[in-house]
Computed example of a mutant assay.
Amino acid sequence: MEAKRLHRNLLQAVWLWSLLAVPVHSCPDSCSVCSGPEKDQCEECRAGWTLHNKTCVDIDECGTELDNCFLNSYCFNTEGSFECRGCDVACVGCMGSGPARCRKCAPGYRLTGSKCLDIDECSDRVLACHGLDEICINTEGSFRCECAEGFHRRDSICVRKQIPSVQEKGLFEDIQEDEVEVLQQMFFGVVLCALGTLAAKGDLVYTSVFMGAAAAMAGYWLSDRGDRLIDSFLKGR
């Protein structure tokens, strides 16, 4: 009995050793089932790959019925799959990236050589902007019209900007100080003449007013002259 138990334990140990002795390996990324770790030991392939001579080869989905990219985009093959990428702005439909792979040029572009390039509407023979006071500015695939300097747009046309009118000055707004002094002297002179005329008729009231005004005028004139003489004397020193 003891011999049988020992024999059974020995068989289990041999079986476990045989399992552990089998080398453990991982399949290549493209393989789902393989007989070894090498690329040519594949038995079955993952999605996006096809088996050829026990090697999984990438399927180029582009150009096949698997390519389901939308309009104005193109198929770009990747490892085991594909991507849909947008066409260049110069294209309407394309077979790849860049303006040289366009199926048709977009509006505002024309085929120049092998590429769809931007049309410079501003340098074209036909005037892009019809207004005489408009300036054409080229943009990518188009252009815009802006009003020239000194003009602004009103009701879709360019009109000249109104320059604010200068407010008219009053009669005595810009008069100088020396001119004010002359006007004052003229005014007092007229008043003195009127009073002198009335005083000549013998009216005592007007005579006294005339004498007082004359004295005030003389005093003002003499004081002004005196101030000027003193200023000139001090400056001369």
Rank of each mutant, 00 (worst) to 15 (best):
G196L: 02
Q184E: 07
C34F: 06
K39Y: 09
D224S: 15
S232V: 09
L229G: 05
V190N: 08
K169T: 03
C94T: 05
S223W: 13
A216L: 13
V126H: 05
S223A: 15
C62V: 07
V182E: 13
E65P: 07
L195I: 04
E65V: 12
D133W: 02
C69N: 06
K201N: 07
V89S: 04
S114V: 08
T50N: 12
L51T: 04
R5H: 00
Y109G: 01
T50V: 13
R160M: 08
M95R: 14
A3T: 03
V14A: 11
G108P: 03
S35M: 10
D60P: 02
R228W: 08
M1W: 05
P37E: 07
S26V: 13
S208E: 15
V205K: 15
I119Y: 01
C102P: 04
C193Y: 08
Y74E: 05
A199I: 03
T64V: 04
I157R: 11
C129M: 02
T207P: 00
C69V: 02
G36T: 09
D67S: 06
R110A: 07
S30G: 04
V92S: 14
M217R: 15
R5V: 04
G48H: 08
H25I: 12
T197S: 10
G96K: 00
F210Y: 14
L16N: 09
L20N: 10
M1H: 07
G131Q: 03
Y109K: 04
Q12C: 13
T207S: 14
G226Q: 15
D29T: 11
C45N: 05
D155T: 10
N9R: 10
V159L: 06
C145Y: 01
D155V: 10
S114E: 08
Q12D: 05
F233T: 12
C193E: 11
G108Y: 02
F76S: 12
L171K: 14
P37Y: 07
A214P: 02
S208M: 12
S142C: 00
G226F: 13
F76N: 09
G212Y: 11
N53L: 13
G131C: 00
C147Q: 04
A21D: 08
E146K: 03
E134S: 03
A216V: 13
L11R: 00
L171F: 14
K115D: 08
T207L: 12
A215T: 13
C42H: 01
F143S: 01
G226S: 15
S73T: 13
A199Y: 01
R5M: 00
D88V: 02
G48D: 05
T64F: 03
N72Y: 09
G219T: 15
F143T: 00
C34K: 10
C105S: 03
E2C: 00
R153P: 02
T55I: 09
A216M: 12
V89T: 09
I137T: 07
S123C: 02
L192R: 01
V191R: 12
V22M: 14
C102V: 03
K115P: 00
R103G: 07
D178V: 04
L195E: 00
F210T: 00
A218T: 15
L183G: 01
K169M: 09
G226I: 11
C62P: 02
C102Y: 01
A213K: 09
S123I: 01
L117Q: 06
V209Q: 14
S18L: 15
H25S: 15
D227I: 11
T50Q: 14
G189N: 05
